[in-house]
């Protein structure tokens, strides 16, 4: 039964039917409340639906501090919880975990809080280490230029 439900989840994710994903996930969690993949899917579905508070509550209830850090940071970012976000980022920098996702969140929150120098610096470093042929290179360049323009 769980295998079939996960197949449904996979199909619904590819169709971007996130409200329906949540329904299938809840059926899995009724059978197996601790299923880590199901809990992870539930967090991402909430985020895709813009329900950042629900995502954050689930992250805090069902995942330890070291898990799904990027997801937690992203929820803080979207909820404008900048103090919590900066604490989280500081913690992870101390642990030398410099994931790309966290560097992007750091650059975005710097821009959002008008710390344009910090934002420019992170995007400059990201540009230097990103392949120019990747789509993301142009996105980084756009954000770099936006932060640089805001500095002037």
């Amino acid at each position: 039964v769980i295998t079939q439900l996960f197949k449904d989840v996979e199909r619904l994710v590819s169709q971007e039917e996130y409200a329906k994903v949540l329904r299938s996930i809840d059926k899995i969690l009724q059978l197996n409340p601790e299923d880590n993949d199901a809990l992870h899917c539930k967090v991402i579905s909430y985020i895709r639906l813009g329900k950042y508070q629900n995502a954050l509550e689930l992250l805090q209830k069902s995942f330890s501090d070291e898990n799904l850090i990027s997801e937690k940071a992203y929820c803080f970012y979207r909820l404008n919880k900048f103090d919590e976000l900066l604490n989280l980022l500081r913690q992870y920098k101390l642990g030398n975990k410099n994931e790309l996702s966290l560097r992007h969140i750091e650059a975005q929150v710097a821009y959002k809080t008008e710390d344009y120098n910090a934002s420019v610096e992170i995007y400059y470093a990201l540009l230097k280490e990103t392949d120019k042929n990747l789509d993301v290179y142009n996105d980084i360049l756009t954000n770099f230029n936006a932060a640089k323009a805001a500095l002037l």
């Binding site: 996960f6 996979e10 992870h40 969140i105 821009y111 954000n143 936006a146």
Partner: peptide, 21 residues
């Protein structure tokens, strides 16, 4: 205000193990 992308969103994704369940 200039264009600014939410690039971090792309790094938040469903677990890669999903297809093996």
């Amino acid at each position: 205000k200039p264009l600014f992308f939410d690039i971090a969103f792309n790094y938040v994704d469903f677990p890669p193990t999903l297809s093996q369940r």
